[in-house]
């Protein structure tokens, strides 16, 4: 049924593009959000505390009368920065560990696997909270905590892929002709593991948004008055009864971004992974 197969493929492509468009919009807002914002994100109007959405404040005002729309726009950069940086760092560290463990095997592998398994016994969010409380509130704390919570999962995934690739004939051939380990890793193993890494990274970005904002919600995020979404959500929950917009709006912003990353990740997997293409 070629027609049906084509529709299926087109649907999958829609997912990829929808995800890319959504994430792209957020990236754009992160870059120029402060210019789009109708108010300064810290500007307070103490006579409009908890103001409901209206013409002057599209998404209402917060507990000290700041324009929530402007804060959400400007806050995009914190959440995206945490997501991108932590994923890049986690991929770098996780891939290095995974490549080394998977390729060299033996004691090196045992050490890497041991460490990874140990960290995997702690749920990601709990690990992130523990690290964030040690590092302290701030962007660095958020990024370190989010990164560290993802490293074990990536290391394990990549190690698995490398174990497969290592047994491939072309890799064995390269080793046999005396190619150096570094060269084999970079020229033959790494390129074949990239697909897995890219797909996992785009899916992890959504997860990173979730972990980052959860830390903010718990009071471990950036320092006030920075308009970080999780912190805004956390501050707004006290007013859920009287000003639900303070919880709903950041909630939607966070959910849409995660949705975008998930669509993008799924789309990329469909497009890049040869096994799901069949």
């Amino acid at each position: 049924m070629p027609a049906a197969a084509n529709t299926y493929r087109a649907k999958r492509r829609v997912r990829l593009w929808a995800g890319a468009a959504l994430v792209g919009t957020y990236v754009l807002i992160a870059l120029i959000g402060d210019r789009l914002a109708p108010y300064h994100p810290d500007e307070q109007d103490l006579f409009n505390i908890l103001g409901a959405p209206d013409a002057a404040h599209w998404l209402g005002a917060d507990n000290i009368g700041r324009d929530q729309f402007s804060r959400l726009l400007v806050g995009t950069r914190f959440t995206l920065a945490v997501a991108f940086l932590s994923v890049v760092l986690a991929v770098t560290i996780g891939a290095t560990l995974g490549l080394i463990g998977g390729y060299f095997g033996g004691r090196v592998d045992a050490a890497v696997t041991g460490l990874v398994d140990l960290l995997l016994t702690v749920p990601e969010l709990i690990l992130a909270i523990a690290i964030a409380s040690v590092v302290g509130a701030g962007m660095t704390g958020l990024i370190v905590a989010t990164t560290a919570s993802f490293v074990p999962r990536l290391a394990r995934l990549i190690r698995g892929r490398v174990l497969e690739i290592r047994e491939e004939e072309y890799v064995q051939a390269a080793i046999t002709v005396g190619m150096s380990d570094a060269r084999v890793l970079l020229r033959h193993v790494m390129p074949n593991a990239v697909t897995v890494i890219v797909i996992e990274a785009s899916l992890l970005a959504g997860q990173a948004v979730l972990v980052g904002t959860a830390l903010g919600f718990l009071g471990l995020g950036v320092q006030p008055p920075a308009p970080e979404w999780g912190t805004m959500l956390g501050a707004g929950r006290e007013y859920l009864d009287v000003a639900p917009h303070l919880v709903v709006m950041p909630g939607i912003a966070i959910s849409l971004l995660i949705f975008g990353f998930n669509l993008l990740g799924d789309g990329l997997r469909d497009a890049l992974d040869p096994r799901s293409r069949a």
Binding site: D42, Q44, N63, I64, P224, P225, A235
Partner: peptide
Amino acid sequence: VAVTEIAAR
């Protein structure tokens, strides 16, 4: 936190 943010501003 709210009072601190107001004073800081």
